[in-house]
Design a protein around this nucleic acid. Structure first.
Length: 565
DNA sequence: CGGTGAACGTA
DNA sequence: CGTACGTTCACCGA
């Protein structure tokens, strides 16, 4: 046993509530959880291994909390999601899939097993064995209840190592690259949760007050403020009395009483009636204020913005559909009107960068359409497309979006036919995805993520319900684009994370095609340059060529609201 | 009390 | 509203 693992080796990490283990073929460590961050930091500095774990977040959190930066990881859960689709993953399921075991005899976890069948099934097994005689993992193996000795934690880490090897054996080189960047994204999620998003609390209070009124000091004041907001709508309809504006059915009746008959009260429906009666614009304004008051109001500020003025929420590296990142507590759906409150700390700035026209560029990459790829060399992709189709730019744009998202408004029809002639390879790729979805068959993103489309097929056979089939078709067509774009974005974010760290930069927000990097002001120009380089590098690695060009719009700002909208 | 749909914020 | 996601509210049925 050498003093440290060899450079670049894979090292698996496992932990219980108070102990931890590191396992690799040639180097192992066991010890207190308290000592784990120090040991990991030492190994990272000397060997830069690929850290392997069942799931990034709980196992790695103590290391991330200590501030140690890990360059390379392999997240078994993310690898499984990529290879096999779906979102919910247990170690036992990932192990079974990686080793080609039959899922029908997958043992249930004792927590799911109210009658104790699982414990009965393992009664005859070696109590210290992680792998049962069936080849499956012991269902309770990852729990603190079972991880009671250093030997068992070592075994659990070793099983992670072996599971990662089995997954690796099933991956193409491109999928390996995707697992690496998805794993980095999962680690980034832990760091995002640790660091939070800088908030100018005073500005946030002012913006909330503008919508919700001054901060109430007791329940009665809160009720009164709510009543005041309601009155500004109800006073415009004589006799409205105490209509409950929060009940859509009552609002429908209220609108009918002033002669407005609508199928529902959604904003885009009511927008057409703004000039018909003053209650309509008042109601829409009430809705916007009510959204701030309830969801992004004082309660939100007090609960989710810490004493260090950082907004924190849970992050997930991929959603259950195509694989985009998700975030909670408003990090992904903060109303634009509150963005001025997202402000860099003193002496710092944000480098704010978003990917321009990401989805059509991704379509060029995933479809391998050489002609469409040529269009991505332009800063504005729609210009060469319009030229080729002999239409105006707005028409070309609508046609491309219609092709990717599914057309409903008829205006795009003729230009769409032009697209079919000009870019048959790209259009065929979209058509194939649509057809696969209709049949309930899975599709794969460019990086290899399996996206299942067989929802509903157990109850309704494919073909029996054309509306459901069409829904699956649209979903599949969108998933290959949206999911592939998410992969490129995560590869970019992971590269930015790796290459701007020495500048004191940290990513504080990921928003599908937009990165917010918090950095000391005197390093802003260098960060801008490296963010651009990171995109070139990530795109070259991800596409495996130079054919498709990706572009960013980057600016240096003090507040998120500055520049672009 | 949990589940569902409406509504709306973001991309 | 083309597709996703997260959050809150009111309603429904138990």
């Amino acid at each position: 046993m050498t003093a440290l693992p060899p450079p670049g080796a894979a090292v698996a990490l496992a932990r219980s509530a108070d102990r931890a283990a590191l396992w690799s073929p040639r180097w192992r460590w066991s010890g207190s959880l308290i000592d784990l961050p120090g040991v990991v930091a030492e190994v990272e500095a000397s060997a830069r291994p690929r850290w392997v774990g069942w799931v990034a977040s709980p196992d790695i959190t103590p290391v991330v909390a200590s501030g140690t930066h890990l360059a390379r990881t392999w997240d078994i859960t993310e690898a499984h999601r990529l290879q096999h689709g779906g979102w919910s993953v247990s170690p036992g399921r990932a192990w079974a899939a990686a080793n080609g075991l039959d899922l029908s005899d997958l043992p249930t976890t004792p927590a799911d097993d109210l009658f104790g069948f699982a414990s009965a099934a393992t009664d005859s097994e070696d109590p210290d064995a992680v792998v049962l005689s069936t080849g499956h993992l012991r269902p309770e193996a990852g729990t603190d209840r079972w991880l009671t000795t250093d030997g068992r934690i070592q075994s659990w880490a070793r099983a992670a190592y072996e599971c990662h090897l089995a997954q690796l054996g099933e991956c193409s080189p491109r999928e390996v690259a995707t697992v690496h960047s998805e794993s980095a994204a999962a680690l980034l999620c832990v760091e995002l949760e640790r660091d939070g998003l800088p908030i100018d609390r005073a500005e946030a209070e002012r913006l909330i007050a503008a919508s919700a009124g001054p901060r109430p000091t007791n329940a009665d004041e809160a009720l009164a403020a709510r009543h005041d907001r309601d009155r500004r709508v109800l006073d415009l309809v004589p006799g409205a009395g105490r209509v409950d504006l929060r009940n859509p059915a009552r609002v429908l009746e209220l609108l009918a009483s002033v002669g407005i008959a609508v199928p529902n009260t959604r904003k885009w429906v009511l927008d057409a009636y703004r000039d018909v009666h003053p209650v309509v614009p008042a109601l829409l304004a009430w809705r916007a204020d009510e959204r701030i008051a309830t969801t992004y109001g004082y309660g939100w500020l007090d609960t989710h913005v810490g004493s260090d003025d950082r907004l924190r929420g849970a992050w997930s590296a991929c959603d259950g559909a195509a694989g985009r990142m998700t975030a909670q507590n408003g990090l992904h759906n903060l109303p634009a009107s509150l963005r001025p409150a997202v402000a860099a700390e003193d002496g710092h700035v944000f480098v704010r960068a978003d990917l321009g026209q990401i989805e059509p560029r991704v379509l060029a990459a995933v479809s391998g359409d050489q002609t469409f790829a040529a269009a991505t060399r332009a800063d504005d992709l729609y210009a060469p497309v319009a030229e080729r189709l002999r239409v105006e730019r707005p028409v070309a744009k609508v046609a491309v979006l219609a092709a990717m998202y599914g057309q409903r408004s008829g205006a795009a029809g003729e230009a769409l036919a032009g697209l079919e002639r000009a870019y048959p390879v790209a259009m065929a790729h979209l058509d194939r995805a649509y057809a696969a979805g209709q049949r309930g068959q899975p599709v794969r993103t460019f990086g290899g993520r399996l996206v299942r489309t067989d929802f509903g097929v157990d109850t309704t056979p494919t073909g029996a319900d054309p509306a459901l089939d069409a829904g699956r078709g649209r979903f599949a067509r969108n998933a290959v684009i949206q999911g592939s774009a998410a992969e490129l974005f995560k590869a970019w974010a992971a590269t930015v994370r790796a290459t701007t760290r020495d500048l004191g930069a940290s990513i504080v927000l990921c928003l599908h095609d937009e990165l917010l990097v918090h950095v000391p002001a005197d390093h802003s120009s260098e960060t801008v340059a490296r963010v651009a380089t990171a995109l070139d590098d990530a795109a070259r690695r991800w596409t495996g060529s130079e054919e498709v060009r990706f572009v960013t719009d980057t600016s240096v700002v003090r507040r998120w609201s500055e520049a672009k909208g």
